[in-house]
Amino acid sequence: MILLALDFTSASSYLALGPSVAFSEEIEVDLLLQPFRVLQLPPPTKIRNESVAERHQRIRAEYRSADLERYAEVQGIRLEIAPYGIDPTLAHGALLVANEHGVGIEFARRVFTSFWEGRLDIESSTEIRKVLEGLDVEFNPSMDLLHAQLDEVRSTLEEQEIYSVPTFLVEGERFIGRQHFPMIRSMLSVERRSPPT
């Protein structure tokens, strides 16, 4: 199984979803999506008397934004919102519920698309409930329970030294970013070829 840790407010998580689903289907390995919140900070702006570190962070952020746009265009997806200050807790909890019903991937696909096109308020329980209802799943969350479940998932992922998204966990090995598919493919195919011991 391939575990993918993602955050609905992360554009790079969104960009990873489609290729990850295609990749898991291609190699016939299950894909499990797990929520992992990573604080999204607004990109720094140019200030007077900018330090070397501040300039580096600004230019890196500008590049990163342009890079996300470049590959979003390749994938034909739209990144139309600024996700800063948006709390994905509810949507992340709903992803766990969707996973329990075997519709986690479709739920994530719908949430990512609607959210990044500015059509879904992921902090609204009414709107998240609608997404799940569209997948024939009921959602009446107890926020305490939801937080507890998310904390447990996070602790498990942090024990695996996951700290960023999107991160893939395959056979206990971490891979940050979708660029690692060739190595994951190679790793899994070698394992398949190995004789049983």
């Binding site: 590959y71 390749v74 994938q75 970013g177 979708r178 660029q179 690692h180 060739p182 190595m183 190679s186």
Partner: peptide, 10 residues
């Protein structure tokens, strides 16, 4: 054709 996605090609 279409631009490929990112990858660490082996």
């Amino acid at each position: 054709g279409k631009s490929p996605d990112v990858a660490y090609e082996l």
